[in-house]
């Protein structure tokens, strides 16, 4: 689609969508949000870019192939699920690490759940973009 308004607007919109998607990903830990919805929003940014400037540019902006992103996400999620093996827990059990925890300080909580969610984010982003790019190029 050749529309200068859409192209200029996309430059800002895509950036905002990507930041918002990260916000959604991190917020999803205790509140509505999460990797899935984050991935969808992030994908929207690239899809918008693809509609405005063509899939070629969108692919270039993505740098990696969308399939690679999706499968790395799957790998990350599986790894996060397998960490509990080291602690002798069942598959997918959440493990927590409190960075800089001290007396009375909770510290920065890092959990396998977060990495699982990042994995989901990447899978959704990659899968949606694979589909949408394929359809854009095909049809």
């Amino acid at each position: 689609m050749n529309s200068i308004i859409l192209r200029v607007a996309t430059r800002y919109l895509a950036a905002i969508l990507l930041i918002f998607s990260l916000y959604m990903l991190l917020r999803g830990h205790n509140e509505p949000g999460g990797g899935f919805i984050g991935g969808l929003i992030g994908a929207t940014g690239f899809v918008l870019h693809a509609i405005a400037c063509g899939t070629k540019e969108a692919r270039a902006a993505l740098r990696l192939q969308p399939q690679t992103i999706a499968l790395s996400g799957l790998g990350l999620a599986l790894l996060a699920g397998m960490v509990p093996a080291l602690m002798g827990d069942a598959f997918l059990t959440g493990q927590w690490l409190f960075l800089g925890a001290a007396e009375g300080e909770k510290g920065l909580p890092i959990s396998t759940v977060l990495f699982f969610d990042i994995g989901v984010y990447l899978v959704v982003l990659g899968a949606i973009l694979t589909l949408v790019f394929a359809m854009e190029e095909e049809i």
Binding site: F36, A127, L131, A134, M135, E138, I139
Partner: peptide, 17 residues
């Protein structure tokens, strides 16, 4: 819905092909 989305996107490309 998510699974359906994936399946139908695939089916649509297949129909076009």
């Amino acid at each position: 819905i998510v699974i359906g989305f994936g399946l139908f996107a695939f089916a649509l490309v297949l129909v076009f092909r």
